[in-house]
Design a binder for these strands. Structure first.
Lengths: 336, 336
DNA sequence: TTGAAAGCGCTAACAC
DNA sequence: GTGTTAGCGCTTTCAA
């Protein structure tokens, strides 16, 4: 390993001078600068970031904590963060929290051991007080999926409720009044907010939402399949189903079709997130776009700037609005 | 930030003793050990990993370089690596190479600056000599998708050719003889190997492969759609199409069906990878399982053990065999 | 414009 | 059993 000392020795200067040349700041004579640069090149010298982090007390790394990297949604989140990190010349440290508060906290601790002071966190289960405490301790911590008023400027979030409301209004405009909802068994933030949006939209036009048409299931393909089955068993008429997310929606669509229910002719189905899968399934799924990658990019930049004091903590929040993606899974409601 | 000195001062011992207690090795008196442990707890002391990395010359981090984290396949790869990293108490440093050799090399350089000496690399475009050189420089470098004989023990790979052959044999057994192939425009390793498997399987039973039935396109959903269109235009009879991967296969299936071709009644379609999408699409896609997560886990462990000399470099290679996943996209060939 | 030197937080001989 | 000490590779005053 070639160190700054090696470069200094070969160039016949002090390490301080080499350091100045490397960082392009500080006064260095032209001739000297050129010589050092040449040696750096020849020797293939690259500064050791651990040593730099030690003395600078910051390591130019961005930590990202998400539940599970193998889920497309979180892969996209990580990709967005990576992008921002690269632009800022930061490295990306990744941790899976596996949907557990304990693992999540451990991940953050281990990130801090690495002097990693910019952190983007997607936390579903930790409670607000824990998160607030954390945010107050770590100036570069940014949440990417939740809004907590006390730390508004540290939240990059999507208006789930408004999105869900918009989606429901779209369905109502198409004549749907008997609307079923396939939601997540874990009724935390997002599921609850999205459900709220549905109910509000219906209430706004004087429709009353039938609570019996709420089906709880796991928030994935299989959960969607199971939800559709349960729904069919109930034998309550419905002309549309709003799934918590795209994965569930596809499961619902498939099972409905397998049971002779035509989508969208008999029943319309919509999802949320606009994952790759919503383009691939048949019929193409109408859904709300969740600009995760863009949001993660924004969150990562924010975290980096906050942690390096390039941006001061204000009261501004960072709200994104989902937009409707129309495909082919919705039709005018049957009037019978 | 609380340092080892703080702990030492409060506990009335030297930093060496604290260090011994932290790592549980070296002789320390029981009473003293207990006192130090208590103080560590009280003060919330956590060792600074940058300082540790500096003196130990190794940073307990695993670097993973893949083309693009937002692609499901690479997300799964990263998840598998994360798992192994966690087990070894390593951190995970992620880089996107964006399918470019230059970015890839930069990523590896920056990983090395971090004293990150265990690296898992999914490289599609770099040439063998570059990779061999790299592997010889970095003892903890492991390739996760290629086999290069000179560095056999550093390769964790899937037998693409055998997998593709097996898949083709399955199709032949179902009576298919007119088989089309939708392959990637970038005819590097995997696509070439998989194509080879197809041709070999047919040759083995005395069938000759019609080169006109090879369609090149991008290796994603859209590419599959385009490939199907081109195939239809050619107006050459075929009863099955083997797509380079699941994404293409789904595109092919959808476009075929949109054009009135029934899958699998008229045409059978198969993919490769066994991504989530192959379960979600209709009909369910018959495909070869690519155990990425497991392979990445293995590769990461190997990289870590190699870099820390816990395992010595042998001539053993690390080969995985894909297995057939039967779903509903294949039927007996029509005899007409 | 350049160099000397202190020190970031930690580990590991070596001494006692 | 425990402490002293010399660095790991780098940055950054301060002095020249």
């Amino acid at each position: 390993m070639v160190t700054i000392k090696d470069v200094a020795r070969v160039a016949g200067v002090s390490t301080a001078t080499v350091s100045r040349v490397i960082h392009g700041e500080g006064q260095v004579g032209d001739e000297c600068r050129a010589r050092v640069k040449k040696i750096v090149e020849e020797l293939g010298y690259r500064p050791n970031t651990n040593a730099q982090a030690l003395v600078r007390r910051t390591s130019m790394t961005l930590g990202v904590v998400t539940p599970r990297l193998s889920m497309t949604f979180f892969g996209c989140l990580a990709a967005g963060a990576e992008n921002a990190a690269r632009e800022h010349n930061y490295k990306l440290l990744m941790c899976n929290s596996l949907y557990e508060t304990k693992t999540e906290l451990e991940a953050i601790d281990s990130l801090r051991e690495h002097s990693c002071d910019a952190i983007v966190l997607h936390s579903e289960y930790s409670d607000e007080s824990t998160l607030i405490k954390l945010a107050n301790q770590i100036s570069g911590l940014v949440l990417v999926n939740r809004f907590i008023p006390q730390i508004a400027n540290r939240c990059v979030w999507l208006d789930n409720e408004a999105g869900s409301k918009k989606l429901t209004e779209y369905l109502i405009k198409k004549g749907h009044t008997k609307i079923a909802v396939a939601t997540s068994v874990y009724r935390n933030h997002d599921p609850e907010l999205r459900l709220k949006g549905v109910i509000q939209a219906m209430k706004d036009v004087g429709l009353k939402f039938n609570q019996d048409l709420i089906i709880e299931s796991t928030a994935n393909l299989k959960g969607g399949e199971e939800a559709a089955l349960k729904l069919l068993e109930k034998d309550i008429p419905f002309t549309a189903v709003i799934a918590y997310n795209d994965l569930m929606a596809v499961g619902v669509m498939n099972t409905l079709q397998d049971n002779g229910v035509k989508v969208p002719e008999d029943v319309s189905v919509v999802g949320f997130d606009n994952l790759y899968i919503s383009r691939a399934c048949r019929p193409g799924l109408t859904t709300m776009n969740y600009p995760v990658e863009e949001m993660a990019n924004h969150a990562a930049s924010l975290a980096i700037e906050l942690s390096s004091n390039k941006r001061k903590n204000t009261n501004q929040t960072h709200l994104f609005i989902p937009e409707l993606i129309e495909r082919s899974s919705v039709a005018i409601a049957k009037t019978k």
